[in-house]
């Protein structure tokens, strides 16, 4: 059994729990003895906060969790400037020059004036981490999970090819962008979109699916997060939502039963709306996974529970 994909990209609208799901997915992939790298960009320390470990600094790749299944998750916070200096060092043995560039503000300038370059550097680091396994390098990982920018920017971010095409017709950056694009489009890369069953996140998911199509990056699973499952059928929910049910919980007063019924009417109405949004997502024709809402908040235990749910619903393994 091997991981079906060696690179999992996770995106989602702000507030949908994208980073939590990425963490859960990394844990799900980290089964017996496997090493999984969980990367984030834009330095939010979102990964380490969830595992309650100190923030990642510089280019360090540090163990952040041992999973119940016996694997290890490492964390990496990717920074464009560190990536550029490392890139210069690896390909040109120019780490000192890189630092000089940094001092002159050239790195900031180059990555700001050509935003595509910044994205090439960030995805380039992910590319390097994924390639270690193929090239039999030390510190290689069985899988890499990339907590990518939100859905509103994801297609543009990953389309590094197009981003530099206008700026660099030939040259090393162009070649680098081409290699990254090949990896992103390969069958070993998959992209997941995290959403809530609310109108705007679902709309953004639909838009992201459309925007990603021309990039030819394979979309894996649409992950519905914070879902409240219900044993009730549609008619029962409709009845409850209409507010006309008379609840009779023994040992509660008539007033309490009424308060419970009106609260339940709102909850049932919400579930009905969620089901409509689930239908919209079904119409996308992509595999769906559903993660149960955890009212207790997110800690390592909650992440392991998400990992279990993802393992059950996504086909993460080959063979």
């Amino acid at each position: 059994m091997t991981p079906k994909h060696t690179l999992h990209i996770v995106s989602g609208k702000g507030g949908t729990g994208k980073t939590t799901i990425a963490a859960g997915l990394a844990c799900a992939l980290a089964t017996s003895g496997r090493r999984v790298l969980l990367c984030e960009v834009e330095g939010r320390n979102g990964i380490t906060e969830r595992f309650d470990v100190p923030a990642l600094t510089g280019p360090e790749e540090r163990r952040i969790s041992r999973t119940p299944a016996g694997g290890t998750v490492y964390g990496l916070s990717i920074d464009a400037e560190d990536a550029l200096i490392e890139y210069l060092d690896t390909f040109y043995h120019l780490s000192i020059a890189g630092k000089a560039l940094d001092r002159f503000g050239a790195v900031d300038f180059a990555t700001s004036i050509a935003p595509g370059l910044r994205d090439v550097l960030l995805t380039g680091k992910v590319y390097e981490a994924v390639r270690r396994k193929i090239k039999n390098r030390p510190n290689s990982y069985d899988a890499v999970v990339f907590d990518a920018p939100p859905t509103g920017r994801i297609a543009k971010f990953l389309n590094v090819h197009a981003a530099v095409a206008g700026l660099a017709k030939v040259g090393p950056i162009r070649n680098q962008a081409d290699s990254i694009m090949r990896l992103l489009r390969s069958a070993t890369t998959t992209l997941h979109l995290v959403t809530l069953l609310e109108d705007m996140p679902v709309t953004e998911t639909e838009e992201a699916v459309a925007a990603l199509r021309p990039t030819r990056i394979r979309i894996g699973t649409v992950i519905e997060n914070m879902v409240t499952p219900t044993p009730l059928d549609h008619d029962q929910l409709e009845t409850a939502a209409a507010g006309s049910v008379l609840l009779k919980v023994p040992r509660l007063t008539v007033k309490q039963n009424q308060a419970l019924a009106s609260e339940f009417a709102i909850e049932a109405g919400r579930t009905l709306q969620e089901q409509q949004r689930h239908d919209r997502l079904t119409a996308l024709g992509l595999p769906l996974a559903s993660i149960t809402f955890d009212p207790g908040g997110i800690d390592e235990g909650a992440i392991f529970s998400i990992a279990e749910q993802l393992t059950d619903q996504m086909s993460l393994e080959d063979g």
Binding site: T228, T230, P231, L232, Q236, T239, A240, V245, L247, K248, V249, L260, A261, E263, F264, E267, F293, P295, G296, G297
Partner: peptide, 24 residues
């Protein structure tokens, strides 16, 4: 009493959410 059971469960989840939010 399936509706009652579900209403009570949802209430419990709502109260847990409120507890988490209050703590934060």
């Amino acid at each position: 009493a399936v509706l009652e059971v579900e209403a009570l469960r949802r209430h419990a989840a709502l109260m847990r959410t409120i507890e988490t939010e209050t703590r934060l």
